[in-house]
Design a protein around this nucleic acid. Structure first.
Lengths: 218, 218
DNA sequence: TTATTATAGATTGTCGACAATCTACTTTCT
DNA sequence: AGAAAGTAGATTGTCGACAATCTATAATAA
């Protein structure tokens, strides 16, 4: 573990992220401040700050005077979040395309290959990670710190809530096609086509995920 | 004053927002927790939570172990923020256009008239408020809570930092033209045109504002 | 004089405690 | 039995204090 000048607040945020990711805290479940404080062996002050920040990002639902709960978005909210993510990343990609060269495209090609491998082996955790790398690689190149920050936050939320479903939602071959399509469209360097392609990419996933999530609850 | 079940944290956020808006706290200036606590007559706990949240929204720059400072974005960051806002609102408008009827358009027409009046009288505070109403009216109709939240946050940031410059940046006639153009384009109901129009609207303002802000600092 | 080091003051990070509020259960009434 | 009211327990909101860290001034050396 490298230099850890993190404040407790940051560490609590990481802890909660991991705990939710691993399914030890499930959507809708209460997150008691005192429980967290005892579990981590620290006081409630930094914990409250972490909870408020995670709530601002949508990972947690905070109800004043009542408590904090793991986010449990409605079908509609899920679709909305994916839609918004598509709009942001779509613009980022069309904006970043000017600084793309063949080396960047082939990097993306390789990530697609790795993604398909992970999908074939059913490693949904790996799959989600490589997918994240793929999309963030495109995102980063737009060089707009503000846009990157917003989009990453949204991505983190979606990753956290739905990465466990990925191997069930798409066949490996679909995953390959969907992402190769993005790379190919970017190679065309047509900004409008790029935006539309990425929006559609997220819209599809949003629809499937929301359906999956609502199935599970009934 | 209506029912006030606000927690202290919320009140501190409002207080800081107003204080910065009125220029009593200037960009780059330090915001001491103890000073705030004594000024408001409360303890530091809710103040810290408010500061962290405002930092998350970009109103404040937070440096761990050092302190909080009023945001003082660079030229580049200013342009980026306006650009991003344009992308979000542009999409929101093109998405909301389906639910627009003539009543909505004429409502926007009236706001444009009021805006020009305020501009003629040099009321930059009024002008900024009506402009905010205009853009939020469009935004709200998209019915995407997530998108609305993100866009509003960004708008609040820009409003706070730059509303004081508005009467200096645009002539009343320019303001009329720029906003009437948006309404007219929306009347055409062409989604692509709407997105481009609103993006351009914000891009222009971003460029002017960033220029103005950098002039002032030199 | 300029650069470096010490030092005192101020500021943030964290803690444990108490009051206000909410939740869930028990009791009471119909 | 079912609904309403009351009560005990738990949870959140806020507070004041202390330790760790940073900042700015003063003292020292080159």
């Amino acid at each position: 573990m490298g230099i850890s000048k993190d404040t407790y607040t940051d560490q609590v945020m990481s802890f909660l992220y991991d705990t939710i990711l691993k399914g030890r805290l499930k959507p809708g479940e209460r997150i008691s401040e005192t429980w967290l404080a005892e579990t981590l062996g620290i006081s409630r002050a930094p914990i409250r700050e972490a909870l408020r920040l995670l709530a601002r990002d949508g990972l947690i639902e905070y109800r004043p005077q009542v408590g904090n709960f793991v986010a449990s978005p409605s079908t509609r909210q899920i679709i909305e979040a994916y839609l918004t993510r598509g709009v942001l990343e779509g613009f980022a990609a069309s904006y970043a395309i000017e600084s793309f060269n063949e080396k960047d495209f082939s990097k993306l090609d390789k990530l697609v290959v790795k993604m398909v491998e992970a999908a074939r082996q059913g490693h949904h955790f790996n799959l989600a990670n490589i997918d994240k790398q793929f999309h963030e690689y495109i995102l980063m190149k737009c060089e707009n710190a503000h846009l990157i920050e917003l989009t990453k936050t949204l991505g983190t939320l979606l990753h956290l809530l739905f990465c466990k479903h990925w191997t069930k939602v798409y066949e490996p071959e679909q995953i390959r096609f969907r992402h190769q399509q993005i790379v190919d469209t970017m190679r065309s360097r047509e900004r409008q086509a790029i935006e539309n392609c990425i929006r559609e990419h997220y819209l599809q996933t949003g629809r499937l995920m929301s359906q999956f999530a609502s199935d599970k609850r009934s």
